[in-house]
Computed example of a mutant assay.
Amino acid sequence: MQVQPKQRIQSIDVLRGIVMIIMALDHVRDFFSNARFDPTDLSQTTIPYFFTRFITHYCAPVFVFLSGISAFLGLSKGKTKRQQSAFLLTRGLWLIVAEVLLVNPGFSFNWEFYFVVGQVIWAIGWSMIVLACLIYVKPVYAGLLGIIMITGHNALDGIHAADWGSGGWLWNILHETGVFKLPDGRKVLTLYPLVPWIGVMSLGYWSGQLYKMEADTRVKILKYAGVGALILFVVLRFINLYGDLHPREVYVENWKNILSFINVTKYPPSLDYLLVTLGPACLVLAAMDGVQVGERHPALVFGRVPFFYYLLHLYLAHGLAVLTGLLLGMKSADEWTGYSLPVVYGVWGLVVVLLYFPCRWYMGVKARRRDWWLSYL
């Protein structure tokens, strides 16, 4: 089936919306949970806490992958390569600025910017800038570059920023999560190093060609890709020699052995992490191919205004935490003790419901108007 200009593909929007809904759970947990440990730390976690965190692993890779597909489909909507490249470049720069000026304060409610964290929006911004250049080569070359980055970057795990001396900041940006100082003394934490994420978006860009194929062919390829990724994940985790910065460990408790098998590294995203997240994403895309939902469906609404949703959910979830503290008479964040998982899930549901109405309004604005700036929010 040939994609026509101006046509949106619902399966892409719906899957994007689903991962946006799940993503809100992760951040609500950050703001409301009473757990003072990493949910993936098997020495402290419980099964419910582990899977509350694990399910949100799907959000960033799926979102970045779909961004690459959308970049390719932009060329099917009447844009020239030059126009699409310019859009990717300017939107990428805007996202980097937005990460610092809008996203970071959403997490901290601090506008001094003495400590900046480069997270998923930062990674998407830089990946778009790189894709703005790759758009001039054949998609297959962008895809091959993505595959090389995704499958090969764990071979660089033995290289550390400390080995680079004064240039260690560059390695922190490219591959190793870490903190470096700016000349004015401010600190930057690169939570999302760029190399693997650029690879994910490049692979997504190549995969956009699937949506110019016949539906049966597309679905078959997506199924093969999804199953193949999961098989490779199982093989690599079983061999336990390559594919993750932290190999699986063996425990006395069987439940910990099972969790250790899927306890993959996100910062930076390991090959195992990307296989176990993008593999199911391909299967879901195959399953939803051709499925139509109503224009008011929450997943569709959120999937069509993802950045607007992202900004709103941060300030709403954090604001609710602050408001709760004030209502309970807490004078500072140090007094916050948090709540158990059932409360976290309840707040998550409230946040998603409250977000639906402004996001549906904004989706309508984007459908009715063609102002240039709407493509950046």
Rank of each mutant, 00 (worst) to 15 (best):
R369N: 11
F238I: 15
R248L: 12
V235S: 08
L102D: 10
I22D: 04
I129Q: 10
I239Y: 13
R91Y: 05
W164A: 10
F357D: 13
I147E: 06
L189T: 05
A215V: 14
A142W: 02
L259G: 01
L283F: 03
V137K: 12
R304G: 07
V234F: 11
N257P: 11
R360K: 13
P61D: 03
Q7H: 11
G228E: 12
M330R: 10
W361N: 10
G167P: 01
Q4D: 10
L15H: 04
A162H: 08
P280N: 06
I12K: 01
F107P: 04
W171D: 05
L156M: 14
G146N: 09
L93Q: 02
L182Y: 07
W206T: 05
Y362E: 06
K181C: 11
W122S: 02
R296H: 15
W348F: 15
G208S: 14
A215R: 13
F233E: 04
Y315I: 10
D157K: 01
T277S: 10
W336H: 10
I129K: 05
A286P: 10
R304T: 11
Y356R: 09
G338L: 12
H160G: 06
L275F: 01
H27V: 11
W336S: 12
A281G: 08
L66F: 00
L259S: 09
L278R: 06
Y114D: 14
I124F: 10
I231V: 15
L285T: 03
S340M: 13
L232S: 14
F302Q: 02
G78M: 07
G346L: 15
K220F: 12
F63K: 01
L203A: 14
V100C: 03
Y49S: 08
W361C: 09
W361F: 15
S260M: 06
V140P: 07
P105C: 11
G208I: 01
A215T: 12
M23C: 08
P39C: 06
P139I: 09
F31D: 02
A162F: 06
P280L: 01
M213I: 08
F113A: 07
L311W: 06
S260R: 02
L42A: 02
I9F: 11
Y309L: 08
Q44C: 02
L145P: 01
V344W: 03
V3T: 15
L355V: 11
L156C: 05
Y205W: 07
N257A: 13
G346D: 14
R36K: 15
T324P: 02
D334A: 15
D371G: 03
G106P: 06
P48Y: 09
A132K: 03
A321K: 12
D244E: 09
A321C: 15
G168R: 05
T90Y: 08
P247K: 07
H313E: 10
G338A: 05
G74H: 02
K220Y: 14
L320W: 06
D157G: 02
W255K: 11
A142M: 04
Q44I: 00
I69E: 00
W169K: 08
D41R: 09
V188M: 07
V293G: 05
L156A: 12
M128K: 05
V97G: 08
P196I: 02
A162Y: 08
V19S: 03
M23P: 03
A60R: 00
V3P: 00
F109K: 06
A98C: 10
G165W: 01
V3L: 15
I96M: 13
G290A: 13
H318K: 15
C359G: 12
L232A: 15
